[in-house]
Design a protein around this nucleic acid. Sequence first.
DNA 1: GTGACTTTGTGCGCGTATTCACAAGGGTTA
DNA 2: TAACCCTTGTGAATACGCGCACAAAGTCAC
Lengths: 241, 241
Amino acid sequence: MTPRQNRNRDRADRGIPEATVARLPVYLRALHGLQDRGVATVSSEELATAAGVNSAKLRKDLSHLGSYGTRGVGYEVEYLVYQISRELGLTQDWVVAIIGVGNLGRALAGYGGFASRGFRVAGLLDADDAIVGEEISGMAVEHIDRLEEVIAERSVSIAVIATPAGAAQGVCDRVVAAGVTSVLNFAPVVLSVPDGVDVRKVDLSIELQILAFHEQRKAGGPDGYGDGPPGPAHYVEAVDA
Amino acid sequence: MTPRQNRNRDRADRGIPEATVARLPVYLRALHGLQDRGVATVSSEELATAAGVNSAKLRKDLSHLGSYGTRGVGYEVEYLVYQISRELGLTQDWVVAIIGVGNLGRALAGYGGFASRGFRVAGLLDADDAIVGEEISGMAVEHIDRLEEVIAERSVSIAVIATPAGAAQGVCDRVVAAGVTSVLNFAPVVLSVPDGVDVRKVDLSIELQILAFHEQRKAGGPDGYGDGPPGPAHYVEAVDA
DNA sequence: GTGACTTTGTGCGCGTATTCACAAGGGTTA
DNA sequence: TAACCCTTGTGAATACGCGCACAAAGTCAC
């Protein structure tokens, strides 16, 4: 009898670095790809390449979960998939509600990546009467007035906010009051929430702006030439407008 | 004559930390909000609160751009907006093409946050003949066969990939070959590109998985009880088969 | 003009993340 | 069984990001 279970517990115990957690889903996806191709075993080098990271980083990340590799061989794909899934909590089902059924909300509702990873969309809600009742991806849109009922009745544990910016904080307050402690926010605002509630933000325009910054750098520095029109002049002049 | 221009150059020069760059768009948004409310001057404390960060961090971030504040007073909103915009490269127009006009592509095409920040969507492309020709947000969808022409003729500098996973790498190779060096990828795959090309990834399901991890932790550790079905059993037993 | 007050800009220490490089461990072959 | 090869897991060094706390620098009241 090897004391493997104890070994696992030792490490898996509290305290996986946040940076590692953020990469686990990437590894998981790469592993699923290997699984589909019938690969049974993979080395850290191969997996790292597939996931787009350094192999030492991959090994250190995995070491936080436990000692799941075999020296001289690598990692068994299926087993690793199971362990990462378990660590991320994907072995259980998560019930998701999407609030705001505009273009983005529809895209999210139809996104296949959810269902296949243990996320079940159990509610689509919107404030617009023209949309309420419409059927999207086999699910009827409900009125936002029913938000609290939907969350309670269907045990929603994750709220996805895809409303316009102006409505986001209000919706957020309501879902938090209804007991939700995990929020994925697509609205371009900084949500404020009480301690104990996790908010993650996905912001399309921010990503573009970061790209623009680097693109500009490639082209040769901010604004290319000179440093600037408006200048600090209006500190002196425009102030008395 | 204050030597302000030199001072600015000293700092703005190469080397703004990546973490800072990622926050500049957030500050910029907060500043625009203040501008809309007619606020002329803001302290680092106020702005930091609006942006959801620590005020010392905000000041340090801004100090990388130059010395744009006034001690005892704060920052002039309009001037700061201009400086951050310039640093991010938003004072010039960026031409964007969206490839893949499914639900997500449509959402992106209609996203107001682009136009208002200097990003102009100049092309919508898709491989599906049923979609080609359709008009979305005032723009006709073109066939992916015309990808290279569109990029060249309209000087596209940023490509947004919103295709299914399987098509993403192929599309990426083509846009890179056509001279694009900035890619925003929504497809759930790791794109490989040559040096000099920037890729940023937005992945909806990864964000959800990170939330699930934390949610699980709140509920009391991985899997709650025991540690697991499939287990490493076959490492011990199946080994001598 | 002077002193009190406010807010910026930053030096410094701390913790986290990344990477290198290698010893330890397991498989494999003769 | 023993020697060799391969890959993991990790110690140690380095780099990076964060936030405190304070001196410097400006404003404002009188």
